[in-house]
């Protein structure tokens, strides 16, 4: 892993932990953004951790860019020494795979896709060596995921699956981005899954939809009353496949203000995970199912 520092114009410093995605790179970027925040460097206005990088926005009239660069670089050793352990939460997110709404949308933008003759799921299954969409869906929901970045648009989580590298699912983005994606679509691009928090443009493959809102600027959804954005980096997610009936039931419960996502507090330790992925995931699931 080789850290690379660079300027983004005169108001940003961008730090890439590694060119490739890994949980080690994610933990380092999260640690560094935490130590930079704790340092309270004058002029810093935004600290944005991402999958394998992070960015600081600052006012160069307050702290000169060279000085800012030096101060951030000096913090790298602190981040390296930081514990790769998170007190976090695991959340069950219901997903209606192969739902009619993403189905309609993917047909509408078929000419922008690698395989105009099939669906996004059939394509993803084939290029990842699965016999059919159902087998691929099972691989998607069987192991938990880690929120490695929140962003793109309002509150959208990027998720990285907690499995060995050779079991990671990988799919390209659409050849040309769509101009429309249903709200709460569960998408996939590169090695990342995502949930589209709002309706809009998008380039990720579309697998299904969740009835659970994750962004609410009106803050009317019962579990979004404290803050309009649901996810934060480090959250663990377990997809739960649901059918149309269950989907409709949850939509009604959200409307009625009676829906509460299933959540359990957990600790996630990177070394422990790397030593025993199946065992760590089993413990995460135990915590969720015991909640």
């Amino acid at each position: 892993m080789k850290t690379r520092y660079t300027f983004g114009g005169d108001e940003h410093i961008y730090v890439e932990m590694d060119e490739e995605m890994s949980l080690d790179a994610f933990f380092k970027s999260l640690s560094m953004s935490n130590v930079v925040r704790a340092e309270n460097i004058p002029g810093v206005t935004e600290i944005c951790p991402a999958n394998a990088s992070f960015q600081v926005k600052f006012d160069p009239d307050v702290t000169h860019p060279d000085e800012m660069m030096k101060r951030i670089q000096e913090l790298e050793h602190k981040a390296e020494g930081a514990e790769k352990r998170l007190a976090t939460r695991i959340i069950e997110v219901p997903v209606f795979y192969q739902d009619p709404w993403t189905q309609e949308t993917l047909m509408r933008f078929r000419e922008r896709h690698q395989d105009p003759s099939g669906t996004d799921l059939e394509y993803a299954a084939r290029i990842n060596g699965y016999d059919n969409a159902e087998a691929f869906i099972e691989a998607h929901y069987s192991s938990p995921w880690f929120v490695s970045m929140v962003g793109f648009v309002a509150g959208l989580p990027f998720l990285y699956q907690l499995v060995e590298r050779d079991k990671q699912l990988q799919v390209p983005k659409y050849l040309r981005p769509r101009t429309d994606t249903p709200k709460q679509t569960v998408g996939y691009g590169g090695c990342f899954s995502c949930i589209y928090s709002v309706r809009g443009a998008g380039g990720y493959q579309m697998f299904g939809i969740t009835p659970m809102p994750i962004y609410d600027p009106e803050q009317e959804v019962s579990y979004l009353k404290d803050f309009m954005v649901f996810f934060r980096p480090g959250d663990v997610v377990k997809w739960k496949p649901i059918d149309r009936e269950e989907y409709d039931r949850i939509v009604a419960a959200v409307e009625a203000g009676t829906y509460t996502p299933r959540i359990a507090e957990v600790d996630f330790d990177l070394a422990e995970f790397n030593a025993d992925m199946a065992g760590t995931n089993a413990k995460l699931m135990e915590a969720l199912n015991g909640s």
Partner: peptide, 15 residues
């Protein structure tokens, strides 16, 4: 790099 996507203009999603 792993996770970046196949197009040479792709990177692992960053800020």
């Amino acid at each position: 790099p792993f996770g970046a996507g196949a197009d040479p203009s792709n990177i692992v999603d960053g800020c």
